[in-house]
Design a protein around this nucleic acid. Sequence first.
DNA 1: TTGTAAGCGTTATCAG
DNA 2: CTGATAACGCTTACAA
Lengths: 331, 331
Amino acid sequence: MVTIYDVAKRAGVSPATVSRVFGGRIPVAADKVDAVRRAAEELGFVPNRNARRLRTHSSEIIAMMVPDIANPFFTVLTRAVEDVARAAGYSVMLCNTDDDPVREQEYLRVAASEPVAGIVMVPSAASRLDWALERQVPVVCVDRHAPSYDVDAVVADDRHASACATRLLYAAGHERLACLTGPAPVETSNERLAGWADAVREHTGSDPDPELIARARYVDTEDGERAAYHLMTSPRPPDAIFAANNRLATGTLRALHRLSLLPPAVGLVSFGGPPAVLFTPPGLIVTHLPTIDMGTTAATMLLERIAGADIPARSIVLPITMEDPQHHATP
Amino acid sequence: MVTIYDVAKRAGVSPATVSRVFGGRIPVAADKVDAVRRAAEELGFVPNRNARRLRTHSSEIIAMMVPDIANPFFTVLTRAVEDVARAAGYSVMLCNTDDDPVREQEYLRVAASEPVAGIVMVPSAASRLDWALERQVPVVCVDRHAPSYDVDAVVADDRHASACATRLLYAAGHERLACLTGPAPVETSNERLAGWADAVREHTGSDPDPELIARARYVDTEDGERAAYHLMTSPRPPDAIFAANNRLATGTLRALHRLSLLPPAVGLVSFGGPPAVLFTPPGLIVTHLPTIDMGTTAATMLLERIAGADIPARSIVLPITMEDPQHHATP
DNA sequence: TTGTAAGCGTTATCAG
DNA sequence: CTGATAACGCTTACAA
């Protein structure tokens, strides 16, 4: 392995000077800079990051902890974080937690032991951040809040947007609205359900009928399809469904297709992106999550923390945009 | 920061003993192991990986270099690699190259400077691996071969499977087959095109009509839709289309839908997974890439190399499975 | 089995 | 501006 000593010898300077040339902070005479660069080039020298990190107690690694990188939402989020990180000279360590607290804890331990410069994480209700926080490792949460920890968070305006989208269903003339949301432990599932319920209460003057609330896994469309089919074949079926993510909406469309009941006969909200279908049924209401924006915002906030920003924890709420196929304008 | 010295003092042993307890290789008396573990627990000690790596010249980081993590195929591949890596105690560093040789080079440099234990990469035609190979960093290529480098590779049987799928189109009675494939610089685009051409030659006895070959970007469905529409509205349109990936197939279905020409009226192969559509049109032929298998195989091969396996470079070709909706059996 | 001590490659300190 | 030199936290001969 080529070290600064080899480069120093070849360039006729001291190792310290080589270090300064690559560090960039301390000024070095131009001719020596040239000599060092040339020598390094000839020898194929690359600074050893481990030695540097050991010495400086710094690191250019950011841990990205997500439930499942195979989920497109987290994938785009990760991509956005990686873009910002790379531009700032950081590398991203990928940590798939599967929403498993044990795995998350293992990764937090790796992060502490690395140690990483900071952590961007999508927490679960059971997340325990103590390990990281005790060690002063900056953490920024995205998409969900970390329960009972006072850390930065970047989330979308789920509840408000859900209520808006639901109102559009009423505006389109639907009266009996169902909500198909995700698992109870996931924050966004509940926020979206709450927003739907807000709009229902606002319109009907009373609490929503519990029979019109269904839950299914966020990840696969089959579970959503089953739940939607069940809703639509119940004794008093809804005339519109609020689907809390686009996979649930895809499943719902499959179920509706089986029943020959596609929109606009039945109202449908696809929350967070269009469903994966051949054509967009008329009347379909789609909201768009600011996924990339969430990722870049979180990464930027983390970089600020890493740079030493000593300010109180912030919670950023990003707006969700909406396509209303009827009015072509969004509230 | 808590070091082995702190733990040693508290446990009443030497730093070396603490190191040995955490290293696990050298035997230590049971009572001292206990004492060390307790002390470490109480102090919240985590071994510093940078110091360890500096000393041992080893690293538990694997670089995963992919064109675009936002592409579901690479996402699943990455997920598979991460699973194998984590099980073996390795972390994954995510490197998005966008198929940009400059970015790739930057990342190779980071990988050398880290230094990482090994690299799993999806190379492009322009990939230059010299940096890594000179430094003896093990590299395994997935999905595509690295041009003119003698390194391990795990690829799918694209050409053969493409020919098989194309034969199914002929078997279904179609006669004039078009091929909608990806960009020319991408190896799989050309392999799939070649397989399609093999089957066409085999059936017609002559080279395929160049007018029946179209290229579109792999990533978005719009480009494929445009190309498919163009093919179908040409003077002598095909009666079947071989779409070289599922996004192209999705775009093709959109185009066919606009023309009211869905399968089985027009034959269609969706290569590498089902298209994202509401229902599966009858007669659609779908092939399935062994994505997860490719990822786990590549990661496993890399771990072998890291462990020191000194064997010639291997090229593993994984089979692609096929659903034939008509025969329900696959060649 | 255990302890001592010498590095691993870099950066920071402190004279010059 | 530059050069010697001492850490950074850990592993590993070598000795005991």
